[in-house]
């Protein structure tokens, strides 16, 4: 671990997966570039069929154009792969919908420096901010939190958060093995972290309302979420260590 005294040795990258986000990505990038000038930014345009790529390029940031839609997991793995190839030490995952406030990123950086963690999660329900969900979705998230806290050996309250800071060891692991399935990119990614011996920590962050789109509260969708989350968790936890090694070889 590098000490706080030599920040120039660290190369920092923000990975912004975006799928048809032409409406939100411009202002999102402007804010990031203004608040976090020390970070490089790469937008992973996940098979966008609108002007996401052009808008991102107009802000002067690197853009990875994926030839077709891979899902958020694929876009994130591409981001990790790019970071490792380009020699970045810190990779920040952030959502392009404006839900994450770039001003909160410093909290994640501080926690990583203090604890020497490999993965720091920006959690929505850790005391700060007023983000809330209710009903079955909440139970599902609580259950996920309880199990994953145990697996990772630390208290986690928001396991499906898209705001994450990863250090060099985590980048190397995720560049090879980052699940692409629904919920795999959050739930299974944490299991992979724990099994690879990475240190996971969380820090509470304030979230904003999403710039576009309304989070769904339909009970049916919540129930589906619960079942899929449990399935993803069960599969991830019972995956043989051999399969992990084979995939990474």
């Amino acid at each position: 671990m590098l000490s706080l005294g030599d920040p120039p040795a660290r190369r920092r990258l923000i990975v912004l997966p975006a799928w048809n986000e032409e409406a939100a990505i411009g202002s999102c990038l402007d804010e990031i570039l203004e608040v976090l000038p020390d970070w490089d930014v790469v937008v992973v345009s996940d098979g966008s069929t609108d002007h996401t790529s052009i808008v991102a390029r107009s802000r002067g940031v690197a853009v990875i154009d994926l030839p077709f839609n891979l899902g958020v997991g694929g876009a994130r793995r591409a981001g990790f792969s790019y970071a490792v190839r380009e020699g970045y030490t810190d990779v920040l995952q952030i959502d392009a919908d404006g839900q994450h406030d770039p001003r909160e990123v410093q909290h994640l950086v501080d926690v990583m420096a203090e604890t020497g963690a490999d993965v720091v999660i920006g959690a929505r329900f850790a005391g700060r901010g007023d983000y809330a969900v209710a009903g079955p979705r909440k139970w599902a998230m609580k259950l996920l939190s309880a199990v994953l806290s145990k697996v990772c050996g630390t208290t986690l309250t928001d396991t499906t958060s898209g705001l994450k800071l990863c250090g060099p060891r985590a980048n190397a692991v995720y560049a090879r093995d980052y699940p692409a399935e629904y919920l795999g990119d959050t739930v299974e990614a944490l299991v992979i972290a724990a099994r690879s011996g990475l240190v996971v920590r969380q820090v509470g962050v304030a979230m904003r309302e999403r710039a576009g789109g309304v989070p769904s509260h339909s009970p049916l969708k919540a129930a589906t979420f619960l079942v899929r989350a449990m399935l993803a968790l069960a599969i991830a936890l019972t995956r043989p260590a051999k399969a992990l090694e084979q995939e990474t070889s």
């Binding site: 994926l66 891979l70 793995r77």
Partner: peptide, 26 residues
């Protein structure tokens, strides 16, 4: 999936290292 990711990364790196500019996908 892996091929698509690597293709995207390669194109981006090529742009950064040379004067070649590829066209944004729209």
């Amino acid at each position: 999936r892996t091929l698509a990711e690597q293709l995207g990364i390669l194109r981006t790196q090529m742009e950064q290292r040379s004067s070649v500019t590829t066209v944004a996908l729209t």
